[in-house]
């Protein structure tokens, strides 16, 4: 059996082609990180992280953007996590597997997941601000403008819609890892369905639920489009103090600094610094999600 020379060459070429595209991926990641880390590392000081922008945002820190991002993801999670978890509980514990309602919900969730994020922004503007907000102003404030304009509440709710599919799908996965046997054991002991869910299913999948939450938060922390029309501000001299205030966000701050600044070259270090902070933030979040998920898998195989 002598190998045909032609076949051999072809094999090597195909392997080389696949390998080189894989290597390009590594190169992209390395270049991206190197550029951002080198450009931003000297910028990251306690001062930079804790102070306000100064001199028309050409100097100073990014504290309001960090604060705004944190507040945004916290409010978003408060809305999305319970709502998503409850939906996932309905899908796994109550809905019949192939019922029309379950299929419709799953279809809706998948659809939500593929809608471009800018459309969420438009929806938030139209629904939360123009409809809900304006109605609230008319009903409670005699038409005085308070809720009918962009603020952190509407931005967080818009963002929670975007992250909802992530929460639902990962919580569903987590709930499914709890064996049917355990549900049966609980029911056979005279527990009600809800007691079984509350005392056996949820505690058994809590780390999966946490993973879903973290993934949702990290998705939310990096998104800009949904909050563009619904609450993010170019610059604010004060931190948001109420739900009806606007706020600054890291992702949008990068955009502002790189395109809207009076002196783009002068603000270059701030741009790098902000980018590095945002990158580290999403990185830490994703990494903790991976660790949690790993620990669940390990626990399952033990």
């Amino acid at each position: 059996m002598i190998k045909s020379f032609k076949k051999n060459i072809k094999g090597i070429l195909i392997e080389g082609l696949t390998l080189s595209s894989a290597l390009i991926i590594i190169a992209i990641v390395v270049v991206m990180f190197t550029v951002i880390v080198i450009g931003g590392k000297d910028q990251i000081t306690w001062e930079f992280l804790t102070s306000f922008p100064e001199d028309g945002m050409t100097k100073g820190g990014i504290f309001p953007a960090i604060y705004g991002t944190a507040l945004l993801v916290i409010l978003m999670s408060i809305a999305a996590v319970p709502f998503g978890t409850i939906t996932a509980i309905y899908l796994t514990e109550y809905a019949k597997e192939n019922s029309i309602i379950a299929k419709t919900i799953r279809f809706a969730v998948r659809t939500l997941a593929v809608i471009p994020s800018i459309i969420y922004g438009l929806f938030g503007l139209g629904f939360f601000i123009k409809f809900v907000g304006t109605q609230m102003d008319n009903a409670f404030l005699g038409g005085q403008l308070k809720w009918g304009q962009p603020n952190i509440l509407w931005a967080s709710l818009t963002m929670s819609l975007l992250t909802l599919p992530v929460v639902i799908v990962s919580v569903e996965e987590a709930l499914k890892t709890v064996p049917k046997d355990l549900r049966a054991a609980s029911l056979a002991l005279g527990a009600t369905k809800w007691q079984t869910i509350w005392k056996v299913v949820i505690p058994g999948s809590i780390s999966g639920i946490m993973t879903g939450t973290i993934l949702a938060v990290s998705r939310g922390a990096g998104e800009v489009a949904p909050i563009l029309f619904t609450g993010v501000a170019y610059y604010l001299a004060t931190l948001p103090a109420s739900l009806s205030d606007q706020f600054m966000v890291l992702g949008y701050h990068i955009y502002v600094m790189t395109t809207q600044s009076a002196n783009v070259d002068k603000t270059m270090p701030i741009q790098f610094g902000t980018t590095l902070v945002l990158l580290m933030l999403t990185f830490i979040l994703n990494f903790s999600a991976i660790i949690l998920r790993y620990r669940i898998r390990k626990k399952k195989t033990d």
């Binding site: 064996p179 355990l182 049966a184 054991a185 609980s186 005279g190 527990a191």
Partner: peptide, 20 residues
């Protein structure tokens, strides 16, 4: 059913203790 199952308990083929 809940009261019935308290009166009529069940042990399964595969041991299924809770992760507690």
């Amino acid at each position: 059913v809940v009261t019935l199952r308290k009166k009529v308990g069940m042990v399964f083929q595969k041991s299924n203790p809770f992760a507690k």
